[in-house]
């Protein structure tokens, strides 16, 4: 059976290591040639804001790291529309390469993957 993996990332980028460690999971999965999706929900949608400048904090720029995903075969990042709406974020302040999942699309999107890693 060929597997597919969904990595769900639900934390803001710099509050802890969760966002970074979820991204690492997605990169490892994709590098094993497994079809891999990264889904940002809840506070995870903050990872996609344009204009992140982390020079003054001791953390790598997560937005920049997300941009390497296409090199690993992850061509788009999926983001939950309801989570954006709850946080007052419109899609024009997000970086490129994002697919917005409309309300109600979440369960089916998650279920179409054979393994789900929640972070």
């Amino acid at each position: 059976m060929s597997h597919s993996v969904c990595v769900i990332s639900s934390r803001a980028p710099y509050s802890g290591q969760s966002a970074r460690e979820a991204l690492d999971m997605a990169l490892v999965s994709a590098s094993y040639d497994i079809e891999t999706s990264l889904l940002l929900i809840g506070d995870g949608v903050y990872q996609l804001l344009k204009g992140q400048e982390t020079g003054q904090i001791p953390r790598k720029n997560l937005a920049a790291m997300l941009q390497v995903l296409p090199l690993y075969g992850i061509d788009t990042i999926h983001v939950d529309q309801v989570s954006l709406g709850e946080r007052g974020i419109s899609s024009d302040v997000l970086q490129e390469g994002v697919t917005v999942l409309a309300e109600g699309e979440l369960p089916l999107f998650i279920q179409q993957h054979s393994r789900v890693f929640n972070f």
Partner: peptide, 11 residues
């Protein structure tokens, strides 16, 4: 060991 072991275990 590496994160690949988590993936491998889950699969």
């Amino acid at each position: 060991s590496g994160l690949g072991q988590l993936l491998d275990g889950a699969l």
